[in-house]
């Protein structure tokens, strides 16, 4: 997924790119503001993050011009947060609006929503490394044996199933949990992790989660 960042503040642009790359997105950062609309038509992007106060032409006009040729979703990112600005962004054809300084968690959530990358609610089960997580029953199955998971344990395991092959740190797990309204603290998370590992071991799963010292866990 490629995201175009249109932002005239260099530092913000670079840091934003860094953040998006860390979360697995491709980024392009066009910076010829004299003729941005033309430059953008040459760049295939799945989403545009658009600042509003730009040199030569503001974000609303730019968005309107892009709309003539393309349906790529645009999220406005701006330091102006009056309701008038919000209204203008909707009129210009933006699908969302986020005020600076923004919270990365919320920005990433809005990006996911804009790209329709919401979690696959309609799946019934997910399978990784011969272990099957039943999304409806909150049960993990392995070679004919199964064990029931609590709400928290299920949620934690679910993130690992969804982020196959990525290390999830304690902090990232907590952020994900909070984002989904599971307001756990660090201790409770660690207690849950330990209990989860015991439960998995009880039905013979020892290969699923690996602890990487100082970094987190990986599926």
């Amino acid at each position: 997924m490629r995201i175009a960042i249109i932002e005239d503040d260099d530092r913000t642009r670079q840091e934003l790119a860094k953040l998006l790359i860390r979360y697995g997105y491709d980024t392009v950062q066009p910076d010829h503001f004299e003729d941005m609309a033309a430059e953008l038509t040459g760049i295939p992007a799945d989403l545009i993050l658009m600042d509003i106060n730009l040199p030569y032409e503001n974000g609303y006009e730019l968005c309107r011009r892009i709309r003539d040729t393309s349906r790529v979703p645009v999220i406005f990112v701006t330091s102006r947060d009056t309701s008038e600005d919000e209204l203008k962004s909707i009129r210009a054809g933006g699908i969302d609006f986020i005020a600076k300084p923004y919270d990365p968690l919320i920005l990433l959530e809005k990006i996911r929503r804009a790209l329709h990358l919401t979690d696959p609610e309609n799946y019934r089960e997910l399978t990784r490394k011969d272990c099957t997580l039943d999304l409806h029953m909150s049960v993990i199955k392995y070679k004919g044996r199964e064990t029931e998971l609590t709400r928290n344990e299920f949620r934690i395991l679910y993130y690992f199933f969804m982020n196959n092959g990525r290390i999830l740190s304690k902090e990232e797990l907590l952020e994900k949990l909070w984002n989904d309204r599971y307001y756990l603290d660090e201790n409770i998370l660690l207690v849950n992790m330990t209990r989860l590992k015991h439960k998995l071991r009880d039905i013979g799963i020892t290969h699923l989660l690996r602890n990487i010292r100082g970094e987190g866990w990986i599926l």
């Binding site: 503040d9 913000t12 840091e15 934003l16 330091s79 947060d81 009056t82 600076k100």
Partner: peptide
């Protein structure tokens, strides 16, 4: 004041994002 607040949010935002990235 309104303009000032909007302008100062640009560097604040850059800093905020930088410190987020650096944890």
């Amino acid at each position: 004041i309104e303009t000032f607040a909007h302008e100062i949010k640009i560097p604040i935002s850059a800093l905020s994002l930088t410190f987020d990235n650096e944890n």
